[in-house]
Write a protein that binds this DNA or RNA. Structure first.
Lengths: 237, 237
DNA sequence: GCAATAGTGTCTATCAGACAATATTGA
DNA sequence: TCAATATTGTCTGATAGACACTATTGC
């Protein structure tokens, strides 16, 4: 057994391998996620249903799982440098009618795309909770629910919403992004103390708004990792 | 098989798919991880090197990724109901010389196994940091480092060490487990307040130790999910 | 009694949140 | 000047950690 050549040992059935990405952004004061419509072709599972953007790993084009996720994201949104984090993997014999399949799920945060891209026949930005309630293809409903839960959970103690905004942004804008994701208001003073003490922002010069006092603009220091706060918001309640 | 279009569409090369598990326990006052020796057969990559326990998904035996991870764990340790959590996935064209491969990594926490199982020719319980320093097969060094980092990180604000102990356990025993993983002493009073206030423990009757006062024994209420504390240990320092 | 361990009480520095006050801009 | 927004200051309740104290067990 052990001395069989490579080819004999590897001659077993392999699962299908795909990558799916939950892409979030803030549009029109809402947390939204990008959904893609499944193709209608013959033999396609769940034709016409909404799903997360994604697809099979192409072993000749994709150098790695992350590269594959970035490729999907670039194809769908044009964004090349999002905040991208692994969410988890889902794999079993039944989730895809075409055979044993496993998918590597990612979630990405990007600044608001241009309004023109907000909705087409094959892709649509949908409010996050509404998207979870839709009957998505495969087990994408479960995956998306996990993504939303992870995002909301981490927003309680990390700087993730900074990746949802175009830079430079002001502290009131950042607070607004937090409030949209968490769906509750935050105290201005406590919020500012927390953000500035965490030290993950760098000055980017003053920014004038439509009216009122000019605010300081900020950029995130390190785009790869979010800051982690030692406590969650509203720990006492 | 299905119709022609299916077969044509799915006739592309598929990656190899495996599952690897970082299995942790506390033995002799140390945080240890189980390593397995790679087989020596011809065509085997990294023959004789230490690695994480794991292997290819068997699409006929494994109903899901999690079932596959549980199977590996049962084979290596006999443990059927560990704390098991997805760690992440690693996949690229180069990590396995046999071809484009992706692995789904899990980490498991189990109570100390019987001493007889502590080390054999093909498996060994190695102190966690020492294991990270060893030159493991494939990219298992990177995966194990991520597992240790995740474990240490989560121990700061979750009840994970409770899964490293046989039940029932006492609060001093639990504190000791925390101190072993974190490699620093914790204050007894603050520790007890935190554990009991979190409400994840249930009484299991008194337990007499080797000497001194009898202590209260505890079990975890819910074995599937750890408790999450609102703050990390030593937030101020 | 003593040693050893389990468990509790008290004090204090810290700090997140509440909310009031002040600063800056454009009209 | 006012309206609108940004930014800062002050107070206070909650609490984690430090550390001393008390409780229980076996010998």
């Amino acid at each position: 057994m052990k001395k069989d050549p490579d080819r004999a040992k590897l001659a077993f059935e392999r699962p299908l391998v795909s990558v799916d990405v939950a892409i979030f952004s803030v549009l029109e004061g809402e947390l939204r996620v990008l959904l893609a419509r499944r193709p209608e072709g013959e033999g396609e599972p769940h034709p016409g249903r909404w799903s997360l953007p994604g697809g099979f790993v192409d072993v000749h084009r994709d150098a790695s799982l992350q590269a594959c996720a970035l490729r999907k994201l670039k194809e769908k949104t044009g964004v090349a440098s999002p905040y991208l984090e692994q969410l988890g993997s889902w794999g079993d014999a039944k989730r895809d009618p075409r055979g044993w399949s496993s998918t590597h799920a990612y979630f990405a945060l990007i600044p608001a795309p241009a309004p023109a891209e907000a909705g087409t026949a094959v892709a649509e930005w949908v409010q996050a909770d509404e998207a979870v309630r839709r009957r998505l293809a495969f087990d994408h409903g479960e995956i998306l629910a996990a993504a939303v839960e992870r995002l909301r959970g981490k927003v309680e103690y990390t700087s993730l919403p900074a990746f949802l905004l175009p830079e430079p942004f002001t502290l009131p804008e950042l607070q607004h992004a937090y409030e949209i994701v968490l769906a509750r208001p935050l105290d201005k003073s406590a919020f500012r103390k927390r953000m500035l003490d965490a030290g993950f922002l760098e000055d980017a010069g003053p920014v004038s708004g439509a009216s009122g006092r000019t605010a300081m603009g900020y950029r995130v220091r390190e785009r790869a990792r979010p800051a982690v706060f030692p406590r969650t918001f509203r720990s006492g309640e």
